[in-house]
Amino acid sequence: MSDQDSFDQYDADQDDAGLDLTPVDPGRGDTRKGRSWRNILIVGTLVLVLGAVLFQALTSARVFFYNVDEAIEQRDDIGDRRFRIQGTVVDEPAAGDDGTIVFTIAHNDARATVRHIGEEPTELFELGIPVVAEGRWDGREFESSQLLVKHSESYVADNEGRDGVGDGTYEVDGSEVGLP
């Protein structure tokens, strides 16, 4: 209690500007148990978040990513495993029964029919657009459950008089699909 008393007196005498002036024993150096716990908590949280991000990425990376021609070549090996298929839409997508979308995608002269059942793709989805579909082979057809529009790095202004769609700017860049 003498510590507390002297502290109160001390506090009253001088303006400490709200600083922590609680007496500590200098002989034992910094006794910062609470603060070291705080450090551990911060570092631990960061390691956990980083681990979670990497785990998600690696889990996702286990789903293979094939271009249409490769997916057809390796159809037997792939079996009914889930994978992602990439290709450009080469015919007008047709709305099938119960909300399915049926269309053909192509890459390097290989073509595959995709039957998509699931959430509708964005408004960008149309003839001439490269897409990435996730799903599995169902016989000769690809059954997709997630259909994403892949945008190329060419950006075209919607100027008057320009017929933008289908003007050949939506090729899948060779450098993006060159490596497995």
Partner: peptide, 11 residues
């Protein structure tokens, strides 16, 4: 974007 395939466009 060059080493792996993905959704993101190139440079």
């Amino acid at each position: 974007v060059q080493w792996w395939r993905g959704l993101h466009q190139g440079q």
